[in-house]
């Protein structure tokens, strides 16, 4: 089963990827998948290993497991997502947001 639209036992809660959440939706981050696999086209690996550190980059900015996150807004046509965590407003790209799994509150 994918985490995409899996129903929780009660049916009240469900897990979604941050990238799939709608404006105003709120939830708790349960998992951040580390990006693995081929590192894009060519030999470039980004700075200090690029994507390999993505989970850590997200964490040091405050996007961590256990945090409550709210979707503030979504830019159109695959643009970035703006979220609120604690006191902060943060923006992140869709690919990254696709690897963040959130337990959505109804």
């Amino acid at each position: 089963m994918t985490a995409g639209s899996m129903s929780w036992s009660s049916g009240v809660r469900m897990e979604k990827r941050l990238a799939e959440m709608k404006e105003g939706e709120k939830g708790r981050i349960v998992r951040i998948d580390e990006h693995r696999g081929p590192l894009g086209r060519g030999k470039g690996r980004g700075f200090m290993g690029g994507r390999c550190h993505q989970r850590r980059n997200l964490q040091t900015l405050g996007i961590r497991e256990g945090k409550t996150v709210e979707i503030h807004s979504r830019q159109p046509a695959g643009g970035p997502i703006v979220i609120k965590i604690d006191n902060m407003t943060l923006t992140l790209g869709r690919m990254m947001a696709g690897r963040i799994i959130v337990e959505v509150q109804e």
Partner: peptide, 15 residues
């Protein structure tokens, strides 16, 4: 034309 990854935006928006 250029190889390599294109990291996405990841940034704090200050008040």
């Amino acid at each position: 034309l250029l190889p390599g990854e294109r990291p996405e935006i990841l940034m704090e928006i200050p008040p």
